[in-house]
Amino acid sequence: MRATRLFRRPRPLTLRAREELDFYLAISPWAIGFIVFGGGPLVASLVMSLTDWTGLTTRHWVGVQNYVAMVTADRDFFTVLRNTFYYSFGSVSLGVVLSLAVALLMNQKVPGINVFRTLYYLPAVTSGVAIAIMFAWIFNPQVGLINFLLSLIGIKGPLWLASQQWAMPALILMSLWGVGGNMVVLLAGLQGVPEELYDAAKVDGAGKWREFLHVTLPMISPVVFFIIITSIISTFQVFENVYIMTRGGPGTATRVYVFHLYQNAFEYQKMGYASALAWVLFLIILGLTWLQLRASRYWVYYEFEGETR
């Protein structure tokens, strides 16, 4: 921010001023879109969070009552919060490690790698209901694939989606299914690492592990950062798999935040309350993202920093 502060002194249209103008030009399509399409609904939902809107017609001003009700009247609020953190933590940590491992493998030069890349990407593109039905089969405790594989190594598998302890791990495992999407991004990052850097590392006599730690990882750290942030944002909003597979059950074991929000919005007809829930979630995700942005200064390596520090 130091440079920015310096820059605030009035000056004629210097190179820096020109650059600033260009910046606003560059982001203008997004800015216009945000104001025209995004801003209105955003503000509307914020206003609605202060009403008892049913999502249909009636609405009255209730002030911050919806926000107060979360901690005083909503018996599931803390449960869904805990479940969502559990899911997000499991899914993000496993997902990032796995997608990185897969991307490194897919970056190997072996015959037919293009076919394998496509295969690994396949799950990420197969949509919705078909996959959900299939996973119900995979997790079927009796005839399902997972417990069959476990039985091969002598383990009696759990009841998965029908068990209060195992339903959430099952959903986390299911989320790893989409690892192909992150793999693609990481792969694009890996492909962008200049060969000279590896050559240089070889000349220095670096082993594979040190090469990964000191060349690959720093070079793709902006992409890893991207994956962590977007995974946090999306896992905190997990909905579809829960909606189709468990509907929050057994009990409240897989009742996650956005499922709870959806039930309030479209089933209980408490759209005002659902909007309040949404804004609290917004703040939670924003907080986590901000922390990540702060932390990123210590581990994300940018070739070009701009003036963001």
Binding site: E19, E20, F23, I233, T289, W290
Partner: peptide
């Protein structure tokens, strides 16, 4: 790659639009 005032806040706003269900 361009330097400007308020860039960080605007960028957080970009990310923010992904955060509301």
């Amino acid at each position: 790659r361009l330097r400007a005032r308020g860039k960080d806040v605007l960028f957080l706003l970009v990310l923010g639009t992904m955060m509301l269900p």
